[in-house]
Computed example of a mutant assay.
Amino acid sequence: MLVRAGTGIHLTETGEYQVGPGSVFLVTPGCAHGYRQMSEFEIINILYLPKRLKMELADLAKDAVCQAI
């Protein structure tokens, strides 16, 4: 999930996170999440097939393309 505009709080099983433009979150399958206190909130959801990734999810943070997002 990529926040394009606005602000809000992203709720996950591990806590609450203030988000704004440029915030990026990886939400794994089966992870409950939601949002609250949204103001002019606009997100982009990028869906993918895990079997098509050529790396482990933990390695995404090290990938130059993912870092550029």
Results as ranks from 00 to 15, higher is better:
40 E>G: 11
45 N>C: 08
46 I>G: 14
25 F>D: 06
3 V>S: 06
39 S>F: 02
51 K>Y: 10
55 M>E: 04
62 K>W: 02
64 A>P: 12
28 T>G: 11
42 E>I: 05
19 V>F: 11
8 G>V: 03
6 G>P: 06
40 E>N: 12
44 I>C: 12
16 E>H: 09
36 R>V: 01
60 L>M: 06
32 A>R: 12
2 L>I: 13
51 K>H: 04
12 T>H: 03
63 D>Y: 02
17 Y>N: 13
42 E>Y: 08
6 G>F: 10
46 I>V: 14
68 A>P: 00
43 I>L: 09
38 M>H: 01
66 C>I: 15
37 Q>T: 08
11 L>D: 00
44 I>W: 08
24 V>T: 09
68 A>M: 11
58 A>N: 08
37 Q>N: 13
16 E>F: 09
6 G>R: 09
20 G>W: 01
26 L>I: 15
8 G>D: 03
45 N>A: 14
44 I>D: 12
43 I>T: 11
12 T>S: 11
60 L>R: 01
32 A>L: 14
51 K>F: 05
62 K>T: 05
25 F>T: 02
68 A>W: 02
16 E>K: 15
48 Y>V: 07
17 Y>F: 13
47 L>D: 13
22 G>Y: 00
49 L>P: 00
41 F>C: 04
19 V>C: 10
50 P>M: 00
60 L>S: 02
44 I>Y: 13
11 L>S: 01
38 M>R: 05
25 F>K: 08
67 Q>W: 08
59 D>L: 12
4 R>C: 10
28 T>E: 14
14 T>C: 03
36 R>K: 13
3 V>T: 14
66 C>F: 09
46 I>T: 11
19 V>N: 03
6 G>H: 07
67 Q>A: 09
15 G>D: 08
14 T>G: 12
3 V>W: 03
6 G>W: 06
32 A>Y: 14
62 K>D: 15
11 L>F: 05
34 G>L: 09
49 L>F: 07
32 A>E: 15
40 E>T: 06
24 V>G: 05
62 K>C: 07
66 C>M: 15
58 A>S: 14
11 L>W: 03
64 A>Q: 13
15 G>R: 05
14 T>Q: 13
26 L>H: 08
69 I>V: 14
63 D>V: 04
5 A>R: 15
43 I>A: 09
